[in-house]
Design a protein around this nucleic acid. Structure first.
Lengths: 307, 307
DNA sequence: CGCCCTTACGGATTTCGTAAGAATC
DNA sequence: GATTCTTACGAAATCCGTAAGGGCG
């Protein structure tokens, strides 16, 4: 059993057609037939029933298929991770990129061009597409190391007419978007925050969590709306003001996310740099207690005293 | 990158010595050297630094090693599982073997000779050494399917002199053994039971959870002691009596444990047989409510009404 | 006759072993 | 000089492609 034969097996299992599978694998059909046959011989059990007209998985084949996929997936990830082990560290971010990250001469960092949501960047770190990411983590993961960079106190926007200087959480509208690809991390945060504080959830589907679409919606709602941490270039309209949120103040914790088992010198240095340089420099805007974090936030314990 | 090359890599990484690794792999040293070299070439990065006198892993090598081990482990398990996919179902048990299991002509079952503790039998099901096990499950696992076979009400032993017909849980002594290999499942159950009910934990290290050693200890304690569900051949001494436990009555849930993704006809039939035949036949001895189960027991929901 | 999996067989590639080389202690 | 990894090269095994076979609609 080799990875190549497993690839062949998966192809046939997916196509259920030797000729098509062979084409996909860019080998000749007889070769594929031979390889499958030898795989079956080495396993001691047939994987397909070849009715003259149909190809079908046997019970053994059905059992092997998910394992084969998992093995191949793991191998591919391992390869990606090793491939990136040399050269500068590839670091992805979501919407906040601390200046101190690249300023350090100690670590050679290349900031990734792709700006994706937190859950996507974290997935890329796991599968080796990135060495590190600055993102929000919804929950712990044994395979990942999280270093707190900046607990960002989220703000609200209110119509300019209002006179209050802060907004209590329970008075807020909180937007969640139907597009999970883009907003899953935010939705998770927002949903739990609304449940915990009594803020009102507003379901949208136009991506208006950030940018101009967000301003439009805030104006139409004519009420305080929680702002996502997603930065955008568009200036806030004159008719809207930002205000701190209190009772409690929601903290969006930006972490440096790396793989636990990645202990290259450069990665260790980057983690140190995160704790010793970036973290202190980012703590200017202090939240107004009490604060609030999601129940599964990896940094929850670090705020025990303040909560 | 193939499984064979990964095996070679792991061998060298473990020996840190090409000659010894080659010997272990039963190939010639130059061949091994070539293979490692071609692996490094295909990955685009060296995995070892060969100082003329020492062999050492590079950062990339250190990153690959755990992945390589995991991939090989997964492949080995997949192979074991498929290998057992044909022929009679290999079923393991711990201490209770229902007669109806083999009585059914519908399923061809071979009872495994090795009698091991629950957590071990369950691990064997996972890695393909067994197709099914009759065991106690401490917690859910997505990869496993649990069918309740018999919620066994645990008994206590008391000195023969005592007149009470039942024993309240809080009066019990509960034994846990230092030998986790043998008693991990029992220890987990016993520890949580003692915490929940106020029963007194007694730490031992002589395996006296069952058998003659248990009788000895029960006599010496001269108090009611919870009996583990482990059957033993030795008759209970005349100076001890068994009594039901109440307030609450601890339930040790024997499950039929199979792999979730194993949907062979024979496995499906075995699961049905478990629910339709074995389960009804085993429900003779009814517990005296209230009952108690561990908080993570997979069958906890099935007792909602009774708890 | 077309479809589709298989067998047969020759060529290309990969893998492996023996022999010899090179560097270190 | 012993140890240890590497290069060199031929042999063996494996993999793959073309050609042809055979059941089925």
């Amino acid at each position: 059993m080799e990875l190549r034969t497993l690839r062949y097996f998966v192809a046939v299992a997916e196509e259920l057609h030797f000729a098509r599978a062979a084409e996909r694998l860019r080998i000749a059909a007889p070769s594929l037939s031979q390889q499958i046959k030898s795989l079956e011989a080495s396993l001691g059990t047939p994987l397909f029933v070849r009715d003259r007209r149909h190809v079908e998985l046997t019970a053994a084949g059905r059992m092997l298929l998910p394992d084969a996929r998992e093995i191949l997936e793991l191998a591919a990830r391992a390869q990606r991770r090793v491939a990136g082990a040399t050269g500068p560290l590839r670091v992805g971010y979501v919407s906040w990129l601390p200046e101190q990250l690249t300023a350090s001469a100690a670590v050679d960092v290349r900031v990734d061009e792709w700006i994706m949501p937190s859950h996507v960047q974290i997935a890329r770190v796991l599968d080796g597409g990135l060495d590190a990411a600055i993102a929000w983590a919804g929950s712990r993961d044994e395979r990942l190391d999280f270093r707190l960079l900046w607990p960002e106190p989220l703000l609200a926007v209110t119509p300019a007419g209002r006179t209050e200087t802060t907004v209590p959480a329970r008075k807020l509208r909180v937007l969640v978007d139907a597009d999970l690809t883009s907003w899953q991390a935010w939705n998770d945060f927002a949903t739990e925050f609304a449940e915990a504080t009594g803020a009102r959830l507003v379901h949208i589907d136009d991506g208006g969590i950030a940018g101009v679409a967000f301003h439009d919606r805030a104006l139409r709602l004519n009420a305080p709306v929680l702002m996502s941490p997603k930065r955008h270039f568009d200036r806030l309209p004159a008719s809207l003001r930002t205000r701190p949120v209190v009772d409690p103040c929601p903290l969006w914790c930006w972490s440096l996310v790396t793989r636990t088992n990645d202990e290259r010198e450069s990665i260790v240095a980057l983690r140190e740099h995160a704790s010793n340089v970036i973290r202190p420099a980012a703590s200017r805007t202090a939240p107004i207690p009490p604060i609030w974090l999601p129940s599964a936030d990896p940094h929850r314990d670090e705020f025990r005293s303040a909560a």
